[in-house]
Design a protein around this nucleic acid. Structure first.
Lengths: 210, 210
DNA sequence: ACCTGAACACCGTTCAAGT
DNA sequence: ACCTGAACACCGTTCAAGT
């Protein structure tokens, strides 16, 4: 029946699909094997262990992040990257933490970081400043995505509505703003925050000649 | 020998210690039981399951976050909260993701969010603006802490140095700035980024009368 | 009332054996 | 060369039984 040979690519693709569907907790090598019509142990001929398989899955997500046209202005390149990363990561919310936490050991991730750093060097003309703003921008972007995907992942796993009743006396502001907090548009807020961290970058070079 | 009775408090404290020592992956109900001189199954008389135990552990961390003096200026209250959260979370790096991701269902977390929202309402005098900047500030703070703790957690688990060799041709900026990136002082960068997101908050009210 | 023992339904991973 | 079966050392959780 299943004569399609097992490859790392097929394994990674199947793992990504499984995780998108079940979440990270529900993901196991045995189920993944079953998806591929194979015993779990067969996977170990192609992949050293579960941990590095997950690293490969994350690399696959980064590969989906569209690279900006290098002719764009520095801030537009960063905006493009941020929104492309957001799109890729929202498509696979269960892997957000791993994606945003993984050290840049693979070329595909390094390349995307390089775009960011290159844009900031061009803008500031100062290596130390470029690095400082790199930290601020990546912190905002990963934090925003963490917050946005958290709600998705919560509603997947949590079934009961056991939230403690909000105490309006000790938490007056939270009680007043709760409705506003719940109805926010993440895409708008993401762009809003990105504008703030980009506006803080001191531009010492004039626009590149064309 | 062990006549000290099991309580939720003792269980949570022991779990926190175990996780700080072993990381989240190495944590199990059976080991936790052993730490307390008890079979794992005894824990289930005090705690419904592992998941809610971890929620209690996170609540414990938030309880360690020092509350700011309410007489401080709005931005100083936020700064105080951010640095206090950072301190609490760095003491327990393996729980960062959970801490920063958990919905505010417990009073102790709600109270800390209320401080933030209250400060922003006071500054802006506008509920919608307060919420927008709340998102930006929390995104930056959680992203910064995620990045800072990531290195800690990585060196704990990863043993081999299997980083792909950096390609200086496709990644010139990363190659040039790699050393600067590695030697950054997280505390300084945290304060730097916090200043940026706080400076973006439009202050429409004058300083409160004393 | 509180804890234990045995059991169930799972894991990741190793390794000799099959084809 | 690639996959399987059985096994090892673990999991979280249930539940009847002990004290």
């Amino acid at each position: 029946m299943t004569r399609v040979p097992l490859t790392v690519e097929r394994i990674v693709a199947a793992a990504l699909a499984r995780i998108d569907h079940d979440g990270l907790d529900g993901f196991s090598m045995r189920k993944l094997g079953a998806d591929l019509g194979v015993e779990a142990m067969a996977l170990y001929k192609h992949v050293p262990d579960k941990e590095t398989l997950l690293d490969l899955v994350v690399a696959e997500i980064y590969a989906e992040v569209d690279l900006a046209d290098p002719d764009l202005a520095w801030d537009e390149r960063i905006r493009h990257f941020a929104h492309a990363l957001r799109a890729a990561v929202l498509a696979h919310p269960h892997l957000l933490t791993r994606a945003v936490t993984q050290p840049p050991t693979t070329p595909v991730v390094q390349q995307r970081i390089d775009v960011l750093l290159g844009a900031l060097r061009e803008a500031t003309g100062d290596d130390a400043l470029a690095v400082r703003h790199f930290w601020v921008i990546t912190a905002f972007v990963s934090g925003a995505l963490l917050g946005e995907t958290a709600s998705v992942r919560q509603t997947d796993t949590t079934s009961d509505e056991s939230a403690t009743e909000l105490d309006a006396i000790t938490c007056p502001s939270l009680a007043a703003l709760g409705p506003v907090l719940a109805t926010c548009d993440f895409a708008t807020e993401f762009a809003f925050g990105l504008d703030i961290v980009l506006a803080a970058v001191p531009v010492t070079r004039r626009r590149r000649p064309r």
